[in-house]
Design a protein around this nucleic acid. Structure first.
Length: 935
DNA sequence: CCATATTTTCTTTTT
DNA sequence: GAAAATATGG
């Protein structure tokens, strides 16, 4: 789309006043934003680092980045320094801002939804959970495990929303304070806190608080343009972040569609977008009403759905069709069925019948035949309603992918693994365990069951060592698999099953990591018992199976997903089945809710946390507008009486003249072609550490990042990071003209060293070692600190369309010889392979050149360990070229899902934590591996 | 038609 | 264990 409509042009060239782009579904929003950003970058005196663009997800960010880059390249514009333009989520930005400018936060790590809950449950008293009062007489206080999710929602709302604190019960306030205190004591951020803390510094008094001063100075000097996509989903705290970033006059552009606000139950505040014009001075509003995606029928129905939303909560607009898709009688059908099996069968019939119908993706492209991946089935709730269709598709062998099914723990394979830990906790005996594994078809033909049990029995001897870190769940899991001889190729069955089983086992490894992150230092016996209980009661609800996302290659398959997840996507044909009253629109939930903790009156606009009819209507609007041409809405009564009536949304559609209530012949007159899947290359963004694994051994990469296997947690974890962070502070201060002296070493280590998994003596040892290392570094480099050029420089290497490598250079410095050196710190005596290090630093050199236009002369490795050796080499041009080529190769093989093992046992394997899952470990290597891990 | 009793369920998900 | 939807009774 190189020619723009008048409205689009208006948006693209409006760069100096606050701009609100109201973008209807399918209006070419991303293209307009990208073009506008390119226009900003083309302005004289504007650097990429002057610009921030927020998206809702990382995936959307990758797409936006890619789009911007392709426009810049097409227009022949400079891409120098592009790595310093922030394109990403608000959470990512806030974290980045803090960890760049506020040394106290360098050591903080981020809790996920899952680890947050475990953290609160483990510390149920200290976190405030069990002392948090409720307004329900039946449950005077929140309870462990049962209410941790609710408690976390409340702590989130108290920070994200506008709260009248006088109306919040004192007990709740006290609980909230307990939680915050505990969070900081453990150096954790939850998702809200990253943004909250950033906002504190943005709003803070610069005379009172040093960090506020630093943060605000950076914003004042650097930030000139802020773009916020999906503005309708911004919550009040995020709005404050936006305010803070633009408080010194940066230009603000917000983009969104109030009709697509579907995350209000997470705090999204529609009024942000609806009243934007009143809250900012001199706002220019541009409405992109032209829908290029869908046929007239789809557009008109979408519009009619949106008009069901009360006008008071809407921006006036009328979506019109502007694309090339033509509506034909029979494209849109509204049908009722006697039961859900008939409905499922009909959907499959239609898909089979429509496969191969001619379809034109764009006005200027050739038609192709519809393929499996051109069909989507969208549900209000996949977990509740998708069952019958999944069954039918499996029966008919129609390829499909389901998203949003929480069924990982139902599978016999995972139940077998859970059995292992029931055995460990003494809840199951050995012969039952064996039966379980045999029934799950997980025993390789050569299985050494006795050996595997020996691993468990040794692990169950809890008097073996005094250090609790010895009783490592992850290591036990990996050793058990090794002893059993369970590897991808020894899993009984077909290759497809092997891959799926390994994916599940990898997910389980991920679950262990999550658990041990929180419970690592629990007494061994209790730790295993808690783990077994957690597996039984908590874990099943936490981990989704989504057998789809193995690999980067996109399968040609029908998509079954929720409307929420479908946001931003489109398909030629969309099915909206199970349109039942009380399901879609959904009836409200019972049980203890947010308002039993925080009174409704204390929160501004409390309604949005409840889920109103209006919200459901917006969701249905999103659902309808995903379709490009074919749209099928259907109803069948659900299993029980609550769901036996038709949804008002179904009736709404059936009443539209665009819909037929009975199908004719399948789109009579439309020619048939060979089915050909829409070709989409996924964007691949790799961090350097991921790239490193891909270089070293593609199969290790697969085990780690596609399957999710994690190596056992190490007790000394955090040591290297602490040293890095301490030196980062040193160099940042050096750039600001503050040369840190040796005496500061202790202080630096106290601030940055965080070793949560170390037992007390080890903590002391590590602390001493760190102080010594920092002191040594400061002594050795006293004279060259002032020649620091950059510290922690973010780089990005663009290899080919869709392949990007992100990384961070530890240090760039000028040597006595006036040469420019790119430096990487290492902190263990155990040397990384020199070839890998050389690759790494040459990637950085490439990135540095793309960032600054300057070529580095040298690469250096400074080892902070006394024994470690220093490397200093010239940057070699041929290597730069070949490294680029190798990244491209690696990216391509990733897309093709071609990730083979190394041909034979090699040096890399000796250092690979997951070698046991890959091949037989030679006896001599086994010995040295055991020595290295202290087993 | 209204008040009360009984039945039935307990989404959605980003960082 | 709470709330909404539906069934029941006047």
């Amino acid at each position: 789309m190189t020619s723009y409509t008048e409205a689009q042009k208006e948006a693209i060239v409006c760069l100096d006043e606050p701009l609100q782009i109201i973008a209807c579904a399918g209006s070419g929003k991303t293209q307009v934003i990208s073009q506008r950003i390119a226009a900003i970058l083309a302005r004289p005196g504007v650097e990429p680092r002057n610009l921030i663009a927020f998206t809702f997800t990382e995936k959307a960010a990758a797409e936006l980045k890619e789009r911007i880059l392709s426009i810049l390249e097409k227009d022949g514009l400079d891409t120098l320094g592009l790595a310093e333009m922030y394109v990403g989520t608000m959470h990512g930005y806030a974290l980045d801002l803090l960890q760049r400018l506020v040394p106290e936060t360098f050591k903080f790590s981020v809790l996920t939804e899952i680890t947050s809950r475990m953290f609160v449950d483990r510390n149920s008293r200290k976190s405030g959970l069990t002392v948090c009062p409720t307004l329900s007489s039946g449950t005077p206080y929140l309870r462990r495990f049962l209410h941790s999710r609710l408690f976390l929602q409340a702590t989130g709302v108290l920070r994200e929303d506008t709260v009248n604190w006088d109306l919040v019960p004192a007990g709740v306030v006290a609980s909230f304070e307990d939680y915050m205190k505990l969070l900081y004591a453990h150096a954790y951020f939850d998702f809200t806190e990253m943004i909250n803390l950033a906002v504190q510094f943005l709003e803070g008094d610069i005379d009172e608080d040093e960090s506020s001063g630093v943060v605000q100075q950076h914003i004042r000097e650097d930030i000139r343009y802020v773009v916020v996509d999906e503005y309708q989903d911004v919550n009040p705290l995020q709005e404050r972040l936006v305010r803070g970033l633009t408080q010194f006059g940066a230009n603000l552009c917000v983009v969104g569609d109030d009709d697509q606000t579907i995350y209000q139950w997470r705090g999204s505040e529609v009024s942000n977008i609806v009243t934007f014009k009143d809250r900012y001075e001199g706002v220019r509003q541009v409405t992109l009403a032209e829908n290029f995606r869908s046929s007239e029928g789809v557009v008109e129905v979408g519009r009619s759905v949106a008009e069901r939303i009360p006008d008071a909560n809407r921006l006036p607009k009328a979506m019109v069709r502007a694309g090339h898709q033509r509506w034909q009688r029979g494209d849109m059908i509204a049908r009722e069925f006697a039961d859900e099996y008939d409905e499922a069968a009909w959907i499959c019939d239609r898909i089979e019948a429509m496969r191969g119908l001619a379809f034109q993706d764009a006005a200027d492209t050739e038609a192709r035949g519809l393929s499996w991946s051109d069909f989507a089935v969208l549900y209000r709730s996949v977990a509740n309603d998708a069952g019958p269709l999944v069954e039918e598709m499996r029966r008919r062998e129609i390829p499909y992918v389901v998203k949003g099914l929480n069924r990982l723990f139902d599978s016999p394979e995972i139940q077998a693994v859970v059995g292992v830990f029931r055995y460990m906790a003494g809840l199951m005996d050995a012969s039952d365990l064996r039966d379980l594994w045999a029934d799950a078809k997980l025993l390789p033909s050569t299985a050494d069951w006795g050996g595997a049990m020996a691993v468990l029995d040794e692990g169950r001897d809890f008097d073996r060592g005094k250090r609790w870190g010895v009783y490592n769940i992850q290591r036990l899991y990996l050793e058990f698999m090794e002893a059993l001889g369970l590897r991808e190729e020894t899993v009984p069955g077909q290759p497809v099953r092997r891959e799926l089983v390994f994916y599940q086992l990898g997910k389980f490894s991920q679950a262990i990591s999550d658990f041990e992150q929180i419970y690592f230092n629990t007494a061994p016996k209790q730790k295993y018992e808690t783990f077994a209980a957690w597996l039984e009661h908590q874990a099943p609800g936490y981990y989704a199976e989504s057998d789809a996302d193995v690999g980067y290659a996109m399968p040609d398959a029908v998509t079954l997903t929720t409307v929420h997840q479908a946001k931003g996507m489109q398909w030629p044909a969309v099915f909206l089945p199970c349109l039942r009253a009380n399901r879609f629109p959904a009836k409200r939930q019972g049980g203890l809710g947010l308002f039993h903790v925080i009174p409704e009156t204390a929160v501004g606009d409390a309604d949005r946390y409840k889920g109103t009819l209006e919200d459901e209507t917006r969701l249905f609007y999103v659902a309808v507008t995903r379709a490009q041409k074919y749209l099928f809405v259907s109803f069948s009564p659900g299993g029980n009486q609550l769901y036996r009536r038709r949804s008002a949304f179904f009736d709404h559609c059936a009443a539209q003249q665009w819909f037929s209530t009975r199908e004719g012949g399948v789109a009579a007159g439309t020619p048939r072609l060979e089915p050909r899947a829409r070709h989409e290359t996924p964007n691949v963004t790799l961090s350097f550490s991921e790239l490193k694994y891909l270089f070293e051994c593609p199969y290790q990469f697969k085990l780690r990042f596609l399957y999710g296997f994690n190596p056992p947690l190490h007790e000394a974890l955090g040591y290297g990071k602490g040293l890095h962070d301490a030196l980062a502070e040193v160099h940042k201060r050096a750039i600001a003209g503050d040369l840190v002296r040796q005496e500061a070493a202790e202080d630096l280590v106290i601030r940055h060293l965080h070793t949560p998994y170390a037992y007390p003596e080890l903590k002391t040892t590590l602390h001493r070692a760190a102080v010594k290392a920092v002191k040594r570094y400061l002594k050795d480099h006293e004279s060259d600190l002032e020649r620091t050029v950059h510290s922690e420089k973010q780089i990005q290497v663009h290899v080919s369309p869709g392949i990007t490598v992100d990384g961070r250079i530890d240090l760039v410095r000028r040597l006595d010889t006036d040469e420019l050196a790119i430096v990487d710190f290492k902190s263990t005596a155990r040397a990384q392979d020199e070839d890998v290090t050389r690759d790494q630093l040459h990637v950085y050199a490439v990135g540095y050149e793309e960032l600054t236009g300057k070529r580095a002369d040298l690469i250096e490795v400074l080892n902070l360990d006394e024994e470690g050796k220093t490397i200093r080499e010239e940057v070699e041009d041929p290597l730069l070229v070949s490294v680029r080529a190798r990244i491209k190769e690696a990216g391509d093989s990733l897309r093709d899902n071609h990730l083979p093992r190394l041909p034979t046992w090699s040096e890399h394997c000796g250092k690979c934590d997951l070698a046991e899952l890959c091949r037989d470990v030679p006896p001599d290597a086994k010995r040295s591996r055991r020595a290295a891990t202290g087993r």
